[in-house]
Design a protein around this nucleic acid. Structure first.
Lengths: 214, 214
DNA sequence: CCGGATCCGGGTTGATACTG
DNA sequence: CAGTATCAACCCGGATCCGG
C-alpha cells in the first residue's frame, strides 16, 4: 500500500481510500447494500475488472469490506461493508453534497444508474403529508427504472419496476435532478421534455417547496 | 482532467478532488489559511514540486483555489481557498474523523507538522472552565512547536513559539494524540516519556474527561 | 453467467536537477 | 521564491482469456 507517510488522520484516511475507484466502490456498497461482483461492475461503469478485484482485496485487508460465500439458492460471493466501512457514510455524504452543484453542468457522455439517486433522494426529498396513505412514484430515466416511495413521513428509493405506481415520471437524469432539488418546477420540466403520467400530487408530496441549497 | 463520466455527485466531486495530493492541499489551506508555495511544500512533506504546481493549477481552474500577488512587504504569491474551496471543510473533517482510529497504529517513518493538530484540537478539546482567564499550553513534538490557547470557552491552536506559556508539553506526536483524545491520562503519558513543565491545570482545562469516541 | 487473472500500451507519478 | 525539465518507475484502462 502506498502511503503519504504523514502523521495526520486525513492523510491516513486517504492512504486507505485515496486511490482511484476506492470511494466509488464504497458508494456502491452503501447504495446497493451487499451485492455480487457483477452488481458492483454494473454500478461502476468504466472500471476495469482487474482494478475492481484489486480494490476489493485492498478494502478487505483494510477491514472496510467483507466477503461472504452466500449459500444456495444464491450460491455466489457477496460483498458487504463492515461496520468500519459503513462508518464512511458521512464521508460519502459530504462529498456528494459538495459535488451537487457540479450536476447542473451538461455532461453528454455520462453514464447513469438508478440507485445513484439514493443520496439525492435522502438529501432533497421529504414526506410533506406524512399522515396520508403511502404513495409510489415510478422514475424512468436513461433506461433505468426506480421507485420513490413516501410512507409515514419517510421517503425511500428502491430500484426495479414497482407492482403499482401512483405516478410515472419519464425524463433525463439532468431534468430529474433539477426537479428533485427544487430548482425547476414540474411545469417547466414538462415543457423541457419530462413526462408525468398519473397523480401529480404523488410527486409533489415529496418535492421540496423551495430550491435546496447544498 | 480525467473523469469517471458518471452522472453522480460523488463521482463528480472525485473527478475534481480524487487525484493524489489534491485533498491534502485543501487540508493545508484550511489549516494554514492563505499561504505561499513554500509553506505548502513544508506542510506537504513528500510531494514533488511539479505535482504541487500541477495540482494548484487544477484547483485554480476548478474554482477551489485562487492566487493573489501579495503587495509589499510580502511581495510574493499567496494561495488561498475560494468560498467554494472553503466549503470542502466538511469533507476534510469527515475524512479526518474516520481516519482518527488509524492514528493509534505505530508509524515510525511518518512526518509530522504542528498545524496538523488543528483538526484534532477542534474535535477533541473544549474549554472546561470558560470563565477563567485565558491560558496557553506550549506543545513541542517532533521538532514542531505549537500553542493551544483556551479563552472564554474556545480552544484554538496556532503554530510558533508563544511569548508566554502556562505549561509546556514535550512529547511524541503519538503520545500527544493519545492524551488529547482522552485515551491516555497525563500520568500514564508521563511514564511513557511525555514531560510536562508548568501548570498541569492549564493542560487539564482543555482535555476531555473521557476518551473521545469518533 | 460468475469471479476473476493476464498481458500490454499509454498516462501519471515521483525524484532530481535546474532556472528566472 | 516559485516553479520547469527530464526521465524512470509505476499505475490505469482495455482487451482477452479462463476455471468453476
Amino acid at each position: 500500500m502506498r502511503s503519504y507517510r504523514q502523521y495526520c488522520s486525513v492523510a491516513k484516511a486517504l492512504d486507505v481510500l485515496g486511490e482511484r475507484w476506492t470511494l466509488l466502490i464504497v458508494r456502491e456498497l452503501l447504495a446497493q447494500g451487499a451485492c455480487r461482483y457483477t452488481d458492483l461492475r454494473r454500478g461502476l461503469p468504466g472500471i476495469a475488472t482487474n482494478l475492481l478485484a484489486d480494490r476489493l482485496r485492498e478494502l478487505e485487508a483494510a477491514g472496510i469490506v467483507e466477503r461472504e460465500d452466500a449459500p444456495p439458492p444464491v450460491a455466489t460471493t457477496l460483498f458487504r461493508l463492515t461496520e468500519r466501512g459503513a462508518a464512511l457514510e458521512p464521508v460519502i455524504r459530504a462529498l456528494g453534497r459538495w459535488g451537487t452543484p457540479l450536476m447542473r453542468a451538461d455532461a453528454p457522455g455520462d453514464r447513469f444508474r438508478g440507485h445513484w439517486l439514493t443520496l439525492p433522494v435522502s438529501m432533497f426529498l421529504a414526506d410533506r403529508t406524512p399522515h396520508e396513505p403511502s404513495t409510489t412514484v415510478e422514475i424512468r430515466a436513461a433506461d433505468e427504472i426506480a421507485v420513490i416511495e413516501a410512507a409515514a413521513g419517510a421517503v425511500t428509493l428502491r430500484t426495479g419496476v414497482p407492482s403499482r405506481a401512483d405516478a410515472v415520471v419519464t425524463t433525463s437524469p439532468q431534468l430529474l435532478l433539477s426537479v428533485l432539488s427544487g430548482h425547476m418546477g414540474i411545469q417547466e420540466a414538462t415543457r423541457r421534455g419530462l413526462t408525468l403520467q398519473g397523480s401529480r400530487a404523488a410527486l409533489e408530496r415529496v418535492l421540496p417547496e423551495a430550491p435546496v441549497t447544498v
